[in-house]
Amino acid sequence: MALLVLAMVVQHNLFSVVVLFGIYSFLMATVLVALDAVDVAMTEAAVGAGISTVLFLAALYLTRGDETRPLHRTWSALLVSVGVGGALVYGTLGLPAFSDPAAPIHTHVVPRYIHEGPKETGVPNVVTAVLASYRGFDTLGETTVVFTAGIGVIALLRRRRRKEGDR
């Protein structure tokens, strides 16, 4: 996967970058399955490898941009990225180890969701129960964001292109 990402960095042809991005999303979905996040993997496979690839291709067609120019500001960009990465790696040294059952993430609200959730909601899939019931407000907000984004796209692109003389 890291190789694929590096290929995306150096590749100049935008079409192949988009195709690589689709493959990358699919690999990410398999990684998520390995991490037990089946719901998320399903969404990532449908959204990342399906819809967003189609949208990227549509945008490519509309902008007719096939080739990107060579990199610019390479050194400062590399410096910024590596600096941020180094700071983050330093930050990970204080984090709990992978799959540590005593980590804070596993000890707070989650045991209640897993033990009481199926009894209280009658839904054995804890992800669905938390999504729609315990955190219903969150999901209402997310749905509204999707709604707003849709409205924004309509507002930006619905009108036909103005004639050149109208400007």
Partner: peptide
């Protein structure tokens, strides 16, 4: 079970 909260 793995932690469901980040999945949501």
């Amino acid at each position: 079970y793995s932690n469901p909260l980040p999945h949501v």
